[in-house]
């Protein structure tokens, strides 16, 4: 039954990703992206990785996309890029994307790479995640907070420097 849900949400996520590329209005594309992210969160929940499913909804949908939607509302909706969706590189773009997909599949193919399935089951709970962060990834965690601070300062500086 889990596999059926994974396939269902996988197909939905592909459909919404295609809509992001095809829709003319950025607001509609942003809403399609939100739906795509929720489908991915459902896949993570099906895999029992509830921590990431929750992060996906809280951070991506709740913070990043809301931020993007606010920015879209600040902008003029009579822009030329709303009328002409695609640049002149449509055919080379499709060819390059197909080539990259084939190359990635060749590199990642589980049958060829032979990544063995892990023994037993690991607890993907919040407790296990928090313990791993405090014991193994504490330095990375501190560096991530520094990166966030740098990001906030940089964004603030850009806005202050604006004419």
């Amino acid at each position: 039954m889990t596999d059926v849900f994974i396939v269902f949400f996988g197909v939905l996520s592909l459909v919404f990703a295609a809509l992001v590329l095809l829709l003319r209005q950025p607001m509609r594309a942003a809403l399609a992206l939100v739906a795509h992210m929720i489908c991915l969160a459902a896949i993570f929940a099906c895999l029992s990785v509830h921590v990431i499913a929750l992060f996906q909804v809280l951070i991506y949908v709740g913070a990043v996309m809301v931020f993007m939607v606010y920015t879209i509302m600040l902008l003029d909706d009579r822009d030329t890029s709303y009328r002409q969706r695609f640049s002149g590189t449509l055919v080379p773009g499709v060819l390059v994307a197909t080539a990259v997909a084939l190359l990635l599949w060749r590199l990642l193919d589980p049958a060829a790479s032979g990544v063995p399935a892990g023994p037993g089951t690991v607890d993907f709970s919040f407790t296990a995640f928090a313990t791993a962060f405090m014991q193994q990834y504490w330095l990375h965690f501190e560096l991530a907070t520094v990166l966030l601070l740098v990001g906030v300062v940089a964004a603030w500086t850009v806005i202050r420097e604006a004419p």
Binding site: V20, L21, A30, L75, S87, A97
Partner: peptide, 25 residues
């Protein structure tokens, strides 16, 4: 199946970066 989905989504994202004119998209 999940890796195939990830590869397809990555390729679609790359396609969007290359062909769309709108900076937000």
């Amino acid at each position: 199946l999940l890796l195939a989905l990830a590869v397809a989504l990555f390729a679609m994202g790359l396609l969007g970066v290359m062909v769309r004119r709108n900076l937000l998209v």
